[in-house]
Nucleic acid binder design. Structure first.
Lengths: 230, 230
DNA sequence: GGCCATAGTATTGTATACATAGAATGAATA
DNA sequence: TATTCATTCTATGTATACAATACTATGGCC
């Protein structure tokens, strides 16, 4: 969707990644100046990225008060998880009506990756767990659906950042495995049920004990997210 | 979602409305300069609006080549309609599990409006028909779901603009009436079925004969969409 | 007559500058 | 000591200016 040719893309992408990975926590102020310095671009460029992130719901852009990482309320949190259930249910339904061979192949390949980094690289492991769901959506062949799932998964990360203490074991590998098995069997009902339980367990863990954590320097965090040649 | 305090909001809103109402047809170039002049704002401000519209899929913003009204392909069209089916199915399902009294009341009030302007004010009639679906989504109480439905309904208008000759009788009043009846009866299966058929008939009419129409001056069209004190 | 190269024009990408609203600081008073 | 108001300062809103890219038109060449 986003065209990566402009200069604001790296800013957008880094911010997005940092928010999803919870390096930038909900509520963190995102001053245009300092972000611009970090990426060596002007405020104009930063602003474009922020406008886009606001449209996606990851950033809250209030007039004359600047941008900050969205702080979802508990009501929004429930709302978003419910929406996610709806979308991923649709994904399961569609995948089970398609040719399973290439789908299962791609999913199993992803699972190997997930296993590889489990307990080795936590950050990467978390990212892969989220990308499993995005991959599922992409395999339906529907770009619209994939975009929506992508967006909603990101927002779920935000929720986990706010309400859960940590989402390391967020997505159980076993549950992913079972989902793949259900798809492979072409059993839509079972696949939907597995996915439902999987998401529900994530949600349960998320919406238990809220706690706020201390702030940190934005520029320092973002510096780690600059991708050369992005 | 969008904060209406900034100066770019009127630009965004007018463009959006113009695109939805098909005054700005798919493919129409949207030069920053002329739009800025129309609204007496700078290109910076216009650009923010365009970035947002791009994120919503109504506008196509290509690097160094500017913005134009999105031209959905036939594949995207099918994709979007399928997504709409998914979302509105969810809406029906939720509404049927809720307290029907206030819901039905609101819906019937809307229906009266729709009747009022049928065959009187075509533009308004079309708008109201679309807003019926948005109202349904809003009545679920889920802002996320309502946003998604809003977005997808807008994109469907775009599709109609591209592939149907005109979408005057886009949404049959009778079908809306039947949907309300199904909700009132609390019959989720029937409501879902009615909605499915309703959307399918819209889709069928939409994806028949594609035709392109001539261009027109953007500024002239937009001038009609400026809302004083917006 | 058609095709390619080049110059000129128009439009976008991005940075900077100025205006303005909010936040922060500090002094004066209850 | 707490509170309030004035002032200062910081950050955002927006416009403008310059740079770079894409489009257009003209003319030479085949």
């Amino acid at each position: 969707m986003y065209k990566s040719t402009t200069r604001s893309f790296p800013v957008y992408d880094s911010l997005r990644q940092a928010i999803i990975e919870q390096a930038l926590k909900p509520g963190t102020k995102l001053p245009e100046d300092s972000i611009g310095e970090t990426f060596s671009v002007s405020r104009t460029t930063v602003r474009n990225a922020l406008v886009r992130l606001d449209a996606e719901g990851l950033v809250d852009l209030q007039p004359n008060r600047g941008a900050s990482v969205s702080v979802p309320t508990i009501e929004e949190a429930h709302d978003i998880f419910e929406m996610r259930q709806c979308l991923e249910r649709e994904v399961m339904d569609r995948l089970c009506r398609m040719d399973k061979k290439p789908i299962v192949k791609a999913l199993k390949a992803h699972l190997v990756e997930e296993k590889k980094y489990l307990d080795v690289d936590t950050t990467r492991s978390i990212r892969l767990a989220g990308e499993f769901h995005i991959l599922l959506a992409e395999l339906t062949g529907s770009r619209i659906l994939a975009n929506y799932v992508n967006e909603i998964v990101s927002r779920c990360s935000l929720i986990l950042a706010r309400f859960a203490q940590a989402h390391s074991a967020q997505c159980g590998l076993d549950e992913h495995t079972e989902i793949i098995a259900a798809i492979e069997a072409g059993d839509a009902d079972r696949a939907i049920m597995q996915m439902h339980r999987h998401l529900h367990s994530v949600q349960d863990r998320a919406l238990l004990d809220p706690d706020e954590r201390g702030k940190e320097d934005v520029s320092a965090i973002l510096a780690r997210y600059i991708v050369p040649n992005a």
